[in-house]
């Protein structure tokens, strides 16, 4: 492997890892604070991509589409939390898993009814529709760099909110001891609504950002959900920092794995997960 090839793959791994973080961060937030395993997280990623596609078609502008799609995703999260999850908090985990699994089926079917079974795509938006030459025959789309930068900025923002704001203190406290936080007079209901909406919107936003990168297909969220669970488990459930480094680790593994050890490519991330769990059963940063 020469240096240029190594550099290109490093860039690929970083970019993919950062996108994974964006999806996984919402998943880990929701589980860490609310104790809810949101299986519908991947479906929201898909809904985000379809929203970006649909609104870009209607409005003719990708950025405008994102501007409208993000509030839609937040509202969708809000509605799901208030209407469905709210009644299940006092029940066992299994009820919540069943509900969010049901949501996968509902969202997938809704996608099929609204947008049909065809494969769609979104054109790379200006001004990031160009590409830069990496080697003499390989170019890199500028939009991928832009997505990486956005993910990095959001990671920074999430870190800042959790470490350095009052809301962050409440979130961290809530993750450790929910009853005590309530006892101190903080309305955990509002906090839950906020966390769920934001978490779900993060996933949808990742889908929107990814829309111009690849193809938009029914069920595209299902496979990414599995990968994100691996990220969350490796990083430590509920830990944003863990999700960040877990995502980068998986991003690198999925990039270098197929090139270095092709025979293990499809199971590499699970091997890594098993290895991490052997050494640190609660994940890297729990």
């Amino acid at each position: 492997m020469d240096l240029a090839f190594f550099g290109v793959q490093l860039l690929n791994g970083l970019q993919y890892g950062l996108l994974l973080f964006l999806i996984a961060s919402g998943l880990t937030l929701i589980f860490g604070i609310m104790g809810i395993i949101n299986l519908a997280h991947g479906a929201m990623y898909m809904i985000g991509a379809y929203l970006a596609f649909d609104l870009t078609q209607r409005l003719g502008n990708f950025w405008l589409a994102i501007l409208i799609a993000v509030p839609i995703a937040v509202i969708l999260g809000l509605v799901i939390e208030r209407l469905f999850l709210d009644t299940l908090y006092k029940r066992d985990h299994l009820y919540q898993v069943l509900l969010t699994f049901g949501l996968i089926l509902v969202l997938n079917e809704a996608q099929r009814i609204i947008w049909g079974g065809d494969v769609h795509s979104v054109a790379l938006p200006a001004p990031f529709d160009g590409s830069i030459a990496l080697t003499d025959n390989l170019q890199y789309p500028v939009y991928r760099l832009f997505v990486a930068a956005v993910c990095l900025a959001l990671a920074g923002a999430i870190y800042w909110v959790i470490r350095h704001t009052r809301l962050g203190i409440v979130i961290r406290a809530g993750a450790v001891n929910r009853e005590m936080v309530e006892g101190l007079g903080i309305n955990i209901r509002t906090l839950f609504t906020l966390i769920f909406s934001v978490g779900v919107a993060l996933s949808a936003f990742a889908g929107m950002m990814a829309a111009p990168l690849s193809s938009i297909t029914p069920g595209m969220g299902d496979s990414i959900l599995i990968t994100c669970f691996v990220v969350v488990v490796i990083g430590g459930i509920g830990s944003i920092k863990g999700a960040f480094f877990g995502a980068l680790l998986i991003g690198m593994a999925e990039t270098f794995g197929p090139v270095l050890i092709p025979s293990l490519a499809s199971m590499l991330i699970y091997l890594i997960m098993a290895l991490v769990l052997l050494i640190k059963p609660r994940g890297l940063f729990a």
């Binding site: 690929n12 993919y16 197929p258």
Partner: peptide
């Protein structure tokens, strides 16, 4: 012969591989 895990649609790493083989 490159075999991509099914049904992954993340192709960047393979494109870099193809470019380096030329």
């Amino acid at each position: 012969q490159i075999l991509v895990p099914f049904p992954s649609t993340e192709f960047q790493t393979y494109l870099a591989q193809i470019a380096s083989i030329a």
